[in-house]
Write a protein that binds this DNA or RNA. Sequence first.
DNA 1: TAACCTTACTCAAACGTTTGCGTGTGGATA
DNA 2: TATCCACACGCAAACGTTTGAGTAAGGTTA
Lengths: 340, 340
Amino acid sequence: MKQKVTLKLIAKELDVSISTVSKALKDSAEISMDTRQKVKAFAKLYNYKPNNIALSLKNRKTKTIGIIIPEIVHHFFTTVIGGVEKVANEKGYNVIICSSNNSFDKEVINLEMLASGSADGFILSVAKETQQKRDYHHIEETMSQGMPVVLFDRIIDELVCDKVIIDDGKGAQVATNHLLSLGCKKIAILTTVDYISVGKLRTNGYLRALRVYDIPFRDDYILKIEDVDNCETEISDFLENKDIDAIFAVNELFAVTAAKILDKQGKKIPNDVAIVGFTDGILSKHFIPSLTTVSQHGEEMGIRSARLLIDKLEADDNVPEEYKTVIIDTSLIQRESTKK
Amino acid sequence: MKQKVTLKLIAKELDVSISTVSKALKDSAEISMDTRQKVKAFAKLYNYKPNNIALSLKNRKTKTIGIIIPEIVHHFFTTVIGGVEKVANEKGYNVIICSSNNSFDKEVINLEMLASGSADGFILSVAKETQQKRDYHHIEETMSQGMPVVLFDRIIDELVCDKVIIDDGKGAQVATNHLLSLGCKKIAILTTVDYISVGKLRTNGYLRALRVYDIPFRDDYILKIEDVDNCETEISDFLENKDIDAIFAVNELFAVTAAKILDKQGKKIPNDVAIVGFTDGILSKHFIPSLTTVSQHGEEMGIRSARLLIDKLEADDNVPEEYKTVIIDTSLIQRESTKK
DNA sequence: TAACCTTACTCAAACGTTTGCGTGTGGATA
DNA sequence: TATCCACACGCAAACGTTTGAGTAAGGTTA
């Protein structure tokens, strides 16, 4: 195990002081040309790289952005990460990704760990459990220590910070409108339980669309799915002998699961039942028939989140705090599942 | 912006020395019960958390594992990350994830950045470009500085380090055997260009299976796809008027793309053409028909990789170096696309 | 030749920890 | 009252870096 080259080592070898080496590498005018060149040559030869840890300690900043997301094995979140990375790399920031696995405790642990020196600020989408518990002390604490936080997608209204969201309600309304405009009248919705903010918002959008079209909503057309991992049974029971001509699903999994069940029932998509999903993932794209869906533009969310965060990180301390909420436009991607 | 609580601050407030505070928090016998309690109470009240950066600098280790993967928006890699996180968290390690985006340069940058203080060791799957260029100096350099590296999936034979792979050849052979055992005789393969190690290995497995069954391989049954993003055209051209009864695809995307094209051609799966893919992702699972596939057990790979790395990190310096290559068993998941 | 200026360095503090060793205080012992 | 010991704490160095201030040597000016 070769030991790492440090300023100290170079200084010793060249028989100068550490500060001379440091300044030489920075091309300081204080140091003679001769010494500068010697030092640089030596540093290059031995592949000197300044120690980030020491720099972080000295500068009291890490040039690192922490991302905490509910799930790592999830297409939407990974696209957001992609967006964050893009901006971060441009601006010379590193990115640390942690997943809370939808657990409140793990979210707290990750946040505390990253907050104690590893990152300068955070981009986060809160865990399901956190939304359920409504306990945000860890996030508030982090912010009160002066670390900026940007919330995205699954946000918390009560918290005062930057936020990046899509207009879930509007997206859902547009999706439902699309079904209505195709002549569908018996539109079911597959959604989540109410404490998931985005689920609730999307349900509201669906209801609003119906209202505008003067179609009374029916309780038996709404399925609030409890256990995502087991949605197949719930959806299957729900669709049994149900007289519908369209389905709006608040995520991709619900949409394809419904499509599969309809297929088994011998119903044709889109002729018997049209389907619109949410989230433009690979499933919707590659399914047969391909699924019409509301795109959340995950990468764009990541880009905007990263920009907001970096702006805060690099802001003058004496400009007054100001928090923005960026709303990203959704777009409806029309595919085979709603072609009539 | 409240300033962070440090030992120094506590010391000043309580009018004792920094070392006393540090020792008190560690319950050192050197410090009186009284002082210990006072310090702890104060620390708790002000929510003191030791600064990781300072600790890392002092201990010359970060308790952090760096993962570098070719793509972040990729189901297989994210499952691997999931496995790594599991083990890492158990053992008190943090995980930093960076994606190389299949770019050699970004791989080098990421590795250097993480190596200069941010991580103690690495788990990595090399970028496509790196495999093509065959330039591994950055990895060798990292290792020569005493930082352990574990390679997984897309590994490099020449490098002497721990490795975790699946037996790609065997997996492919089992998959092909499965098709042969169903009575298929005209089996096409959709694979990658040769410099992608796993693609080549899988192709070899396919050829081996044919040989065992005494079926001559045909050049026109092999498609080496250049441009993954544009595989649809390549596959479509390839399948045009081709007389085959089965397809073995070396990844999920190729498999579903082929399935979609066959569907358009009016061919039935599995009756006209059976399909086996590679990688057990959501696409294979949810497609209609669901696709038989070779599971790579991504999470298991992550778990094993993390264990190998942590073993190295925590090894006695005087035990001789020894490098292992762990081969994870693949398993064939039979689904509708090969039911006869 | 004394005063001053340049040049080319070195010193030392700081970032927040940990920890071996030194030390002042007080009480007990001789 | 001199000696010793335990106790409870402080000092200082170290991790690797940056940087303002200090300084020695040599040259220039008056």
